[in-house]
Simulated assay, not measured.
Amino acid sequence: MQRLGIGQLILLVVLIVILIVTAVWAVSVWNATGDAVMGTHGWIALGLGTFFSLLIGCGLMALMFFSSRSGHDDVADPFRKPGPPSE
């Protein structure tokens, strides 16, 4: 296994600090809005939004998977080395 360089170590520390600051901010916002009440329509909207977001995300991932397996993406790959000519 390769050791981390100084640049990679600095990047890792910066990303961990950003993650910690984001988590602290999220907890503080969550606690500050603890008295807000969400009605039935809000819960329905949250549920439908979550469901359709997952549905679209899974559908796009499935399309990407099947597209890469069928070979349609091979023509659009600019980094592909040219192979022997097909007959």
Rank of each mutant, 00 (worst) to 15 (best):
A62E: 01
G83Q: 14
T22D: 06
G71I: 07
I20G: 02
A76D: 10
I10H: 06
F52C: 09
M38G: 03
L12D: 09
A36T: 13
G47M: 00
L60Q: 11
E87S: 14
N31F: 10
N31S: 13
A76G: 07
L46K: 10
H72N: 15
P78H: 04
R80C: 02
W25E: 08
L9D: 09
L12F: 04
K81G: 08
G49N: 02
I6M: 08
Q2W: 04
L9W: 11
L12C: 06
L63H: 02
A23K: 01
F51Y: 10
P78L: 01
G5D: 06
G59A: 14
T33M: 11
V27L: 05
A26F: 02
I44A: 02
T22P: 01
A45T: 03
P82H: 13
W30M: 11
W30N: 04
Q8Y: 00
N31W: 08
G42F: 00
T33Y: 09
V14L: 12
E87R: 15
S53Q: 07
G7Q: 12
A32H: 10
V13M: 03
T33L: 07
E87Q: 15
L12N: 05
N31C: 03
S68H: 06
G7V: 10
V75P: 05
V17K: 05
L60A: 11
Q8L: 09
W30C: 05
P84S: 07
A23D: 02
L54S: 03
H41Q: 15
G49R: 00
L63V: 09
T22Q: 07
F52Y: 11
F79W: 11
L4F: 10
V29G: 07
